[in-house]
Simulated scan of single mutants.
Amino acid sequence: MTIELEYSSSLNGASYLLFELKQVIKLKQQGLTLPEIRKKVIDGNLFQFENKGRMNRTLPSIMRRAEVIDQVLTDLMLDGSVENAKIINLYAIMKTDRLFFEFMNEVISEKLHNNDLLIEKKDMNVFFTAKAEQSEKVANWSETNIEKLKRAFMQVLFESGLLKDRRGKELSRLIIDEQIKEHLIRIGDAKYVYAMGE
C-alpha cells in the first residue's frame, strides 16, 4: 500500500538521526507499542537531547521512519554493519519524506547514473525552483525555510555516505548490501534502490 505523501519541510528539524532511529527500532523489536515507545523515549531521554523541544520536533519523524522498517530490515539494521544501518536509514528517510525522495530520484541518482559526481548549489536551486512551480505548498515556504532544507538535504547526503565531506560537493557511490537490495526489490521498493544510485 502506497500512501501519497504531502510535501513537508520536517527534515529541517529531523535530518539524519541514525542513533535515535536505532533506539526506537530496538524498542519496537522488544514488542512495545508506538505510545509505549514514545513514553519511554521521552521519560528516559533516550535520544540524550538537552532540549525537550528538539525531542518533540524529531520524534514524529523518527516514529514514521521506524514504521516503514520491516522485520528483515530491523534485523539487518540492528545486527549488521554501520554501513547497512546508514543505507536503511536513508531508505526510511526517502520512504517517509516525498521531497527528499524526489531530490534523490531526480538529482542524485541521475548524477550517479551519468557519472557526474558533483552536487552544486545550482543543482539545489533548480530542484527547489521546479518544486515551487509544481506545488503551491513549496512555493509558499519562506526563503529561510528553503535554505535550511538545502542544508538538511546536504547533511543527509553526508551522513549517509553519499557526500565525501561535509563542506564538499563531491558525491560518493554507496555500496548497498545485496541482502538489503534484494529485499527492497522483493517488497516492491526498487525505486528507492534506484534513487540511491544502483
Rank of each mutant, 00 (worst) to 15 (best):
E67S: 12
L162C: 10
D165L: 05
L174Q: 02
G13H: 01
R186D: 12
S9H: 03
G197C: 08
N145F: 05
I185D: 04
R173G: 12
V24R: 03
E120C: 09
L18I: 06
M196N: 00
F19L: 13
F153R: 06
I69H: 07
G161F: 05
F100G: 00
I146N: 01
K40S: 14
Q30S: 12
K40R: 15
S81V: 08
V68P: 14
R173A: 10
N84W: 05
D189Y: 08
G80Q: 14
L118A: 04
R57D: 12
Q29D: 12
Y91G: 06
I25C: 11
Q179A: 14
Y16W: 15
K22F: 04
G80L: 10
E110G: 13
T2A: 14
F127T: 02
E120N: 04
T58Q: 10
M77N: 03
R64I: 05
A152D: 07
M104Q: 09
E143R: 01
L171F: 07
L32K: 06
E182H: 15
T74Q: 14
R57I: 13
A190G: 10
N51Y: 00
M124Q: 03
L78M: 07
K191A: 09
K52Y: 00
A85C: 15
D70I: 03
M1E: 13
D165T: 00
I180N: 13
R173Q: 13
R98H: 02
E110M: 10
K150S: 06
F127H: 06
E20S: 01
E110D: 11
T58Y: 05
R151W: 13
I88Y: 02
L163Y: 13
S109H: 03
A85R: 14
A92E: 04
E83V: 14
Q155G: 08
I108D: 08
K39M: 03
M104V: 10
K181M: 14
S10C: 01
N84I: 04
K121L: 08
T58P: 02
L59V: 05
L163W: 12
E182S: 15
K26A: 10
G168F: 05
G188Y: 09
I146P: 01
K40F: 07
Y16T: 15
T58S: 07
N105R: 00
Q48L: 00
K39I: 00
E170V: 01
A85I: 15
G168S: 04
A92F: 06
F100V: 05
A195Q: 09
E106N: 00
N105H: 06
F101A: 11
K28Y: 14
L17S: 02
R64H: 04
F153V: 07
Q23N: 15
L27T: 11
L21G: 08
V138D: 03
A85F: 14
E182Q: 15
I3K: 13
G13M: 04
D189T: 11
A139Y: 08
A195E: 07
T96F: 07
I185Y: 01
E106Y: 05
R173T: 09
